[in-house]
């Protein structure tokens, strides 16, 4: 009897994992507000990035403030491959990252091991 319960429960958990991790879920997006000719977005680093999608305006100097609250070394760097940025994020400190917004497009950022991703849109 317990064997059957384990099989049913196991399948249910597998189904849940598939739905939770592979299903489509809304991504938190923040659009930058322009103030004094600069645009700033605060990104919290905890279990990934919040927000995960940042929209910047083209041509306005932009700063992304990354604050790592996550204890994991997985997230101890943030890498913007298109901008040549590889910034260490000491835990609990806010690191300002300047973004060159001269070219519009969709860019990505990732943690040092390329496990967590964020999206940067310049338009």
């Amino acid at each position: 009897m317990s064997q059957i319960i384990v099989v049913i429960a196991g399948l249910l958990v597998i189904g849940f994992i598939a739905w939770w991790f592979f299903g489509k879920h809304a991504v938190a997006t923040v659009e930058a507000q322009v103030e004094d000719q600069t645009q700033t977005v605060d990104v919290k680093v905890l279990g990934g990035y919040s927000p995960e999608r940042v929209v910047l305006k083209q041509g306005v100097p932009a700063v992304l403030n990354f604050t790592r609250e996550d204890p994991s070394s997985c997230l101890d760097r943030v890498v913007f491959p298109d901008f040549g940025i590889n910034q260490p994020l000491p835990k609990g400190e806010t690191e300002a990252i300047k973004i060159d917004t001269s070219k519009p497009g969709e860019y990505t950022w990732a943690c040092g091991m390329d496990m967590f991703h964020g999206q940067l849109v310049i338009e």
């Binding site: 939770w20 991790f21 879920h25 279990g47 990934g48 995960e52 204890p71 997985c74 496990m115």
Partner: peptide, 15 residues
């Protein structure tokens, strides 16, 4: 902490 924070955001990692 890290695993739970990731989980809430539909992510999973080493932790």
């Amino acid at each position: 902490q890290s695993a739970w924070a990731s989980f809430k955001k539909h992510h999973a990692n080493m932790d």
